[in-house]
Computed example of a mutant assay.
Amino acid sequence: MHGNGRHEGSGGGRVVVGVSGSLGSLAALHRGVAEARHRGAELVPVLAWEPPGGEFGYRRSPCPPLLAAVREAAERRLLDALDAAFGGADPGVPLRPLVIRGETGPALVQAADRPEDLLVLGQSGGLLRRRLRGSVPAYCARKADCPVLTVPVPELLHELEAMNRRTRWHLPVGEMSELLFVKG
Rank of each mutant, 00 (worst) to 15 (best):
E175I: 02
Q110S: 08
A112Y: 00
L160I: 14
R129C: 04
A73G: 15
L118F: 01
L78K: 02
E35D: 10
D80Y: 08
G92W: 13
P137R: 06
P106R: 03
L171T: 06
V148Q: 00
G32C: 08
A85D: 11
D113A: 05
S22I: 02
K183Y: 09
E42Y: 06
S124C: 09
V151T: 02
G87R: 07
H38D: 14
R96L: 09
R114A: 11
R168G: 06
L79E: 13
R6M: 07
N4V: 14
L95S: 11
R166Y: 10
V16C: 10
G11F: 11
R6Y: 10
G18C: 00
L160A: 10
V148A: 00
A41S: 12
G18K: 01
A107T: 03
G54I: 06
E42G: 05
D83A: 14
P97W: 03
L132G: 09
R131H: 06
T167R: 09
R59L: 07
A81D: 01
Y58I: 07
I100L: 08
G40L: 08
A68E: 13
M176V: 09
G21K: 10
A107H: 03
A89Y: 02
E155M: 11
V182Q: 12
P152W: 00
A112L: 06
S10G: 14
R101M: 04
L23M: 13
M163H: 06
V70Q: 15
D90Y: 01
D80F: 07
T104G: 05
A144L: 12
V33D: 11
H38E: 14
H2D: 15
V148Y: 00
M163Q: 12
V93G: 10
R37W: 02
A34M: 11
G24W: 00
F56H: 13
P45N: 12
L119C: 00
T167G: 09
S135H: 01
C146W: 01
P91F: 08
G88H: 01
A27M: 12
R59T: 05
L127G: 03
N4R: 13
P154D: 07
L127N: 14
L29R: 11
A112K: 01
I100E: 04
H170K: 15
L43C: 14
L47S: 03
G9M: 13
A41M: 12
L132Y: 12
